[in-house]
Design a protein around this nucleic acid. Structure first.
Lengths: 192, 192
DNA sequence: AAAAAAAGAATGAACATTCATTTTTAATGT
DNA sequence: ACATTAAAAATGAATGTTCATTCTTTTTTT
């Protein structure tokens, strides 16, 4: 029978190596041989876990995206008031992006380049539904501006990606105060 | 003596081809041979205009960044009121990003990947000084929130990049109303 | 006709993927 | 408990391709 324990470890090592190397050099500048070396594995072994290089990066993208959204909506409850729900989700997203920098950077790169297949990208988007529902409710109640979800996202959530990249590059450090200011700016831009 | 007219045309064709191909496939997935073909030039000719592939993309980045900031601050005047100045700059940036999509997409990719040399990136940043000065003045006058420039940028300017990418992907179309809503959200997030 | 520009073909290195072989695993019989 | 064994997992080396860059020759310019 197939062993399982070791397999999962190797897969995780490959995923971690991919994230790290792609962050630092980009997808096409990262050879499979380097990923293998960093994961302490032979290049051929990668092909036991993934079909090819493109499949590897697609799978890593979906893995990370899932981890991200799971984190964002953990013990979120549909029934609390809109303003409170938004603050809760926003702060969890902020926490993820500013603490799990490697993974968040990887997502940012995937979302801004042609590195990921369009189908995988679509798949990744579905996970944000609870936030869209919240906004819908907020608009109905007259609490949130009646504008496109894309605009709401651009002004309340997306700025966090920019701040994370700046923090990663070392040109900007966000502390508790900064986080609160950022939250306020996010809320100010979408509330009525 | 060296001819000059033709040279400039060829260089421009190379720059345009690079932007287009890098947008659609990414830097490392774009062969020099393809750039040459699209510019109607021999691969060897590229090396008369640029040292190598990295130099090519660095130069294209700085060219485009310069064109962008020149556009953003065209006939901007330091002496008009802060709110008015911000609106003027914001709208010019928006106009560039939503109309010159190819070039703006290229900048977004450069700013979110390890594709560009760090020195070239630094160089590109200097050009935003007039906007920083405006914010400084606005803070002194108590019109603009007394928070980090990075936060101000993240919430007022950066969202435009996201909207542009969404528009380019065809999932979102911004019209005159949308633009006005976006401007309002930007201003709401940074004004006191 | 000399110098510059351009071209196409050649070169050599890097890399994704596959292949042939070895090592590990765990189910089975003793 | 232990030895046996067939399947699965893993490996390092080999393969064939792609591509950046250079070289040699041709074309254009003045």
């Amino acid at each position: 029978m197939a062993k399982l324990q070791k397999s999962i470890e190797k897969r995780e090592a490959l995923v971690r190596a991919t994230i790290h190397l792609v962050n630092n050099s980009g997808f096409h500048a990262t050879p499979m041989s380097k990923i293998a070396k960093m994961a302490n594995v032979s290049p051929a072994t990668i092909y036991l876990y993934f079909e090819n290089k493109q499949d590897l990066v697609n799978k890593v993208y979906l893995d990370v995206k899932t981890k991200f959204t799971d984190y964002a909506f953990q013990n979120y409850n549909e029934n609390i008031p809109v303003a409170e729900g938004f603050e809760k989700i926003w702060k969890r997203i902020a926490h993820f992006k500013l603490k799990e920098v490697e993974e968040a950077m990887f997502l940012a790169q995937c979302d801004n380049t042609p590195m990921i297949d369009e189908p995988s990208r679509q798949e990744g988007l579905k996970h944000l539904q609870p936030l869209l529902n919240l906004w819908h409710k907020g608009k109905q109640e007259g609490i949130i501006k009646p504008i496109s979800d894309y605009l709401l996202y651009a002004y309340s959530i997306n700025p966090l990606s920019f701040l994370m990249v700046m923090q990663q590059r070392g040109v900007f450090k966000i502390d508790q105060d900064g986080l609160e200011e950022a939250y306020q700016a996010a809320w100010d831009s979408i509330k009525i």
